[in-house]
């Protein structure tokens, strides 16, 4: 009987654990999105956890939409955040949207990474970032963690870099994305 239970544990449990398939409908469960501003005198990191998103995956194709309110970013300084809102025209364009589009050859389970084309709408401009690596890690409960680094540039969005003592910040403002997506049977909101 003990041998039987061992067999059950060895064969059945892995079969149950493998459950997550990319194919299906997904909603953004939680997220941490942060931008990093670099100036010769200091670094600033602004974070938000208020992103929302939905996506659909077929057998070989995934399309996702993520939205983040500009004003939700917190850099640890209220005045700086208001300044960020001003230079990014956050009052007129309050939402950053990111469309993620990728193809995958993974027939089963979740691939370790995929190359996705990102279309970012921000500060009234639309910029495409092709072939961005999305790293994927399957989690418990039909969830997948997706991380990415978006090489955002201020010039791309016609944003004038703010300056300190006459020295502007670096044009490159990399955005680190750490998201957890949950598979759903259907979109309730739709």
């Amino acid at each position: 009987m003990k041998r039987f239970l061992v067999c059950v544990l060895v064969f059945i449990l892995p079969a149950l654990a493998v459950g997550v398939e990319l194919k299906g409908d997904w909603v953004l469960e939680k997220s941490l999105i942060s931008y990093k501003v670099t100036h010769p005198l200091h670094h600033v990191i602004g974070k938000t956890t208020e992103a929302r998103g939905k996506g659909i995956c077929t057998m070989d194709h995934g399309q996702f939409l993520v939205g983040v309110p500009v004003k939700s970013f917190d850099s640890g300084d209220g005045d700086r955040d208001t300044h960020m809102l001003q230079i990014t025209q956050g009052a007129d364009h309050p939402l950053i949207t990111v469309v993620i589009d990728f193809k995958t050859r993974a027939k089963k389970g979740v691939p370790d990474k995929v190359l996705a084309d990102l279309t970012v709408q921000f500060a009234g401009k639309t910029v495409k970032y092709p072939q961005i690596t999305l790293k994927m890690v399957p989690l418990e409960g039909s969830q997948v963690q997706v991380t990415a680094l978006i090489p955002l540039s201020l010039k791309d969005f016609a944003i004038t870099p703010p300056s300190l003592l006459g020295v502007p910040i670096n044009d490159s403002v990399p955005v680190q994305v750490d998201t957890t997506w949950k598979k759903v049977t259907s979109f309730d909101a739709k």
Partner: peptide
């Protein structure tokens, strides 16, 4: 609009 943001979430 499918993302469910309200006016308060976005308005500056």
């Amino acid at each position: 609009s499918d993302l469910g943001f309200t006016q308060a979430d976005l308005q500056s």
